[in-house]
Design a protein around this nucleic acid. Structure first.
Length: 803
RNA sequence: GCGAGAGUGGCGGAACUGGCAGACGCGCAGGAUUUAGGAUCCUGUAUCGCAAGGUGUGGGGGUUCGAAUCCCCCCUCUCGCACCA
């Protein structure tokens, strides 16, 4: 008997799979297509992260299982290689991303991902930085533009005054530049946006009907953030016009004692009185220079009175109009009616500036001295004809009162903002727009796509705040496609999230150069049957993908509007109870474990760490347990003395069938850790028997195959099987053989365990009770007591309640 | 602050609709075998106690014949979001 040598076996079977093309489904003619998708990686220079291995293994097990259930599983892999991460890293290393990225991809694919033993179909690989891909990313941009979903507006970007560069929100986390720790400021720039907000309602509503992890759906729902309330019009004193605010609490209207505008509100310069102008201007200037982070940081409320007054439409009271940066221009109307009695922020503000606080909602109908804002529901007081009304009802009544007077109307607002997709960077697909002084923003004609990213040696951002592409005059200056006059290309590139918003659509259609996606093939394979990935993408990637899919559906490009029938978020992999990080030095290097223990052990150990959807805690020491298990499997199945056929022993047979059932159910619910535990238990059981049978081994090997496919193939062959274990049929269990005929029933007295009795599974209640009553330990504990009640749970327990 | 998830032996974690707490694995201890072992096999391993028997699932209450599981209050950790009117 040979020893288990993972290295030879894994190389051998990886080669065999590739040669026989067993993981390349017939894209055109597959009979039972099943699209198994996982989140494609960013090919970092550090190489494959163990978190990638964790994610891919879990998804691959699902794919392999479905394959063994007879589906034509399509499991593609690709590379999300555009973006600032690559660019910054390349700059740091003094390299060009165009030279670094292909290297990283080769390493990922050939040295790492191929060792994983997943069923990737490399014929359909996608690389977002390749012109054959980003040509179609640009095409998607154009489609959205054509549909009126892309528009330009001035918008602030994060700006590092020391690095002189634009930063992404992630790089500017906490208001501090990731690289130099200087305070981030903002700059205004004209940028492209996608109107994802016009899909807010649908994005929210569809959540009810898609089979996604609840955590992800909750995160999306919060991110969309639908709220209902009213727009209310406050006529301005000494000014022709109204001030419109949005509120979710029209019921508190009588408590509005002042108004607050966002400093950016267009009415601010209009309504400010002469004697307040200096202060107002200073405040507005200061607010402009602050980043959103700084604004949020300063918990202390600030603000300035504009000198203007507005009239509360419900009671004609004159109330002062202030400005403050706690009111955000980007939400609602950019202006609020302040109700200090019932809003924490307004309360703070009112206290600080000695503005009146009026209680209008009371939890008990009584009047109180307010120590803090009361934000809960209650009964209206100090509210004239609405006094005594429940706040919930008052919301409706006051809204319709305002509607009748044409001073307001019911309104809904979403937290979701439009998607800014311009990036003032080099490493991305250029936005396919040409700006013409006469014709405006003109899309690049389809026949001119892709707009190639020009080769440039100096790709560093300069202090201008413009994209490095703006410096490339030769590339920048073009003829307007519409009028032929001199024009300039848009120098920005698109957000990395656009690259990844449609990659799943491209995979099945990679063979086509003349279309982004092939209609027939797309019809056959999409939407994706199962998507597995990290929950860090719950709101951005997974929202953008849904938006793009919906938009394409509305344009008639595809005929479904939700991209993934099923989505499951896997948990986070940590190490020794801590988050892995380079600085802590507690990272797991996949190469080391592929080498030392092999992909089979590595895969199975990762899945054994904990529930897949909750994550796991990696400990180097633990992996040996899985290695031992696989070696035991090896010894069991490779034994020359295996007897032909199947065991006759009823208990063993039952254990086998129960395990098939358990593993099947657990794989389906992604409970991989308990599936593996069940396999271990079965093997322990089988090893105890005097005789070992070939048919037992054949079942065991197939059950292990999704987790540890190489060893399974090798043993499958040893067992004299033709073909691939990966393509073999998943074992079936017989429900009848799973049933126990003798069961252990526990005997409790007052809920405490006092004995166990073995009874036939078909025993009647009386028989079981009688047997329990006569158990020696039960007898001892019943001594001198009166049984007042007997609880009988069939197949489980009896409980004697005594006094 | 808001939201989501979690808290069970020395450790990772099991426990289906409330019904034997600690499956499986690591580690540890003892033994067998071996020239040797980071090999293999066997036995033990929540805790107090010699035992009978207690006690135990973050803490405190409750519901129930019976609670890790359900309800209320509190504490801790992780991950999101964060002045969203």
């Amino acid at each position: 008997m040979k020893n288990y040598d993972h290295k030879t076996i894994e190389e051998k079977w990886q080669k065999a799979w590739e040669e026989k093309r067993i993981f390349n489904p017939d894209i055109r003619n597959a009979e039972r297509p099943y699209y198994n998708l996982m989140m494609f990686p960013y090919p970092s220079a550090e190489g494959l992260h163990v978190g990638n291995v964790y994610a891919f293994t879990g998804s691959d097990i699902h794919g392999r299982y479905m394959r063994m259930r007879g589906y034509d599983v399509f499991e593609p892999m690709g590379f999300d290689a555009f973006g600032m991460h690559s660019e910054n890293f390349a700059i740091k290393m003094g390299m060009h991303p165009a030279e670094l990225v292909p290297k990283n991809i080769r390493r990922f694919r050939d040295e790492q991902l191929k060792r994983l033993g997943a069923m990737f179909d490399w014929d359909h690989c996608v690389d977002t930085t390749h012109p054959s891909y980003y040509k179609w990313t640009q095409w998607i941009f154009k489609q959205l533009h054509k549909a009126g979903l892309a528009y330009q507006k001035d918008s602030p970007v994060n700006w590092c005054p020391s690095c002189l560069t634009v930063l992404s929100d992630e790089q500017a986390g906490g208001g501090v530049c990731e690289r130099c720790d200087s305070k981030v400021t903002t700059r205004k720039m004209r940028q492209w946006f996608f109107s994802i907000t016009s899909y807010a309602e649908r994005l929210l509503k569809n959540l009810n009907r898609i089979d996604w992890s609840q955590t992800t759906k909750t995160a999306q729902s919060r991110w969309i953030g639908r709220s209902t309330g009213a727009h209310i019009r406050f006529p301005l004193v000494d000014y022709f016009g109204d001030l419109v605010v949005y509120t979710t609490r029209p019921d508190t209207l009588f408590g509005a004692t002042y108004m607050v505008l966002s400093p950016e509100h267009p009415l601010v310069p209009e309504i400010t009185k002469a004697d307040q102008r200096m202060q107002v201007d200073t405040y507005v200037e200061a607010a402009k220079s602050k980043t959103p982070f700084e604004r949020a940081e300063d918990k202390e409320k600030t603000g300035v009175f504009t000198g203007a007054y507005a009239v509360n439409p419900i009671n004609d009271q004159r109330i002062p109009v202030w400005i403050s940066d706690y009111v955000l221009m980007g939400y609602g109307a950019g202006a609020i009616m302040a109700v200090p009695g019932h809003d924490t922020r307004d309360f703070e503000f009112a206290k600080k500036f000695s503005l009146p606080i009026v209680e209008v909602i009371s939890p008990d109908g009584e009047k109180h001295e307010l120590e803090e804002a009361y934000t809960g529901p209650g009964v209206l007081i100090n509210s004239s004809q609405f006094n005594g009304m429940e706040s919930e009802k008052a919301i409706k009544k006051i809204t319709s009162y305002l509607e009748d007077k044409e001073m307001g109307e019911y309104a809904e607002t979403f937290r979701l903002r439009d998607w800014c997709i311009s990036r003032q960077r080099y490493w991305g697909p250029p936005i396919p727009i040409i700006h013409c002084p006469d014709c405006g923003a003109v899309p690049v004609p389809d026949e001119d796509l892709p707009v190639l990213l020009p080769e440039m040696t100096d790709i560093k951002p300069d202090g201008s705040g413009l994209s490095p592409l703006a410096r490339n005059e030769q590339w920048l200056n073009v003829q307007c496609p519409a009028c032929g006059g001199p024009a300039k290309r848009d120098a920005d590139v698109n957000d990395n999230f656009l690259d990844s918003a449609w990659y799943f659509l491209r995979y099945p259609s990679t063979e086509f150069d003349d279309r982004a996606i092939d209609k027939d093939i797309t019809k056959k394979w999409l939407p994706v049957d199962c998507y597995i990935g990290g929950n860090e993408h719950a709101v951005l990637h997974l929202m953008y993908v849904r938006f793009v899919t919906m938009a394409l559906k509305d344009m008639g490009v595809i005929d479904f509007e939700e991209p993934f029938k099923k989505f499951r978020a896997h948990g986070l992999l940590i190490k020794d109870g801590d988050k892995m990080s380079k600085s802590k030095g507690n990272i797991v290097n996949p190469d080391e474990f592929f080498e030392k223990f092999g992909a089979d052990t590595f895969r199975m150990y990762l899945m054994f760490l904990g529930p897949y959807e909750q994550g796991g805690d990696w400990r180097d020491e633990g992996i040996i347990g899985i290695r031992r298990f696989l070696e035991r499997v090896w010894r069991f199945a490779d034994d020359e003395n295996l007897e032909k056929g199947m065991t006759k022993d009823k208990d063993t047979l039952r254990a086998i069938h129960q395990t098939i059932r358990k593993v099947t159910e657990d794989i389906e619910s992604l409970s991989y850790n308990t599936a593996i535990a069940a396999l271990m238990e079965l093997l322990n059981e089988l090893m105890k028997q005097d005789a070992h049978y070939a048919d037992e081994a054949k079942i065991l090997v197939r059950l292990i195959c999704p987790f540890s496919p190489h060893i399974a193939e090798e043993l499958w062959r040893h067992l004299g099987q033709e073909g691939f274990c990966s393509a073999a049929r998943w074992p079936k269990f017989d429900e009848k053989l799973c049933v126990e005929d003798v069961i252990t029933v526990i005997a409790q007295i007052n809920g405490k365990l006092r004995g166990r009795v073995e009874v036939s599974a078909r025993a009647s209640k009386d028989e079981v009770l009688e047997k329990a009553r006569t158990d020696a330990n039960v007898v001892a504990h019943l001594e001198g007591k009166t049984v007042v009640k007997e609880i009988y749970v069939p197949g489980k327990l009896v409980n004697f309640v005594v006094k």
